[in-house]
């Protein structure tokens, strides 16, 4: 797997969700609603013999809007849902990829990010990705 290609592929797939600005790497600043593909939290080599399979955990961070807005809650509900056109899990796992073999969105944590003086609601999705080692 090539890390840059994997991050590009995930970002491109997220870009099919209407209304999201997607970044294939952490940008200097974001304007919500935005999705940012982060760098792997773990990158494991040699899942099988002969450089057959590598495995990585990749975070995707969605920053939606002000945490105090009710409409933001409803938007977030669609993104974290396990199904539907806005579901990050459904959209990512439903993609066809050449940069890796398979991806599973294993979970999501909600958090608050402060940008400037504003608290934004954010969701951090964990992606488990397997692909060719060589």
């Amino acid at each position: 797997m090539n890390l840059a290609s994997v991050m590009d592929a995930i970002s491109a797939r997220l870009d099919t969700i209407a209304g999201l600005r997607c970044f294939a790497y952490p940008p200097g600043s974001v304007v919500p609603p935005a999705a940012v593909v982060g760098y792997p939290t773990t990158y494991g080599y040699d899942e099988t013999y002969g450089r057959g399979v590598d495995r990585m955990s990749l975070p995707v961070v969605l920053v939606i809007g002000k945490v105090s807005d009710r409409s933001v809650r409803d938007q977030m509900a669609a993104y974290v849902s396990g199904s539907g056109t806005g579901s990050v899990k459904t959209v990512i796992e439903g993609g066809t990829y050449t940069a890796f073999d398979v991806v599973r969105v294993t979970g999501v944590e909600l958090d608050t990010y402060t940008i400037g003086a504003t608290d934004y609601l954010a969701a951090i999705f964990d992606l488990d990705i397997l692909g060719k080692g060589a």
Partner: peptide, 19 residues
């Protein structure tokens, strides 16, 4: 290290699928 182990059944090299 085990990671370089080669396993073949007949002429089929299965190494890259073996953990």
């Amino acid at each position: 290290h085990s990671k370089n182990t080669i396993i073949k059944l007949g002429s089929v090299d299965l190494s890259t699928y073996v953990k």
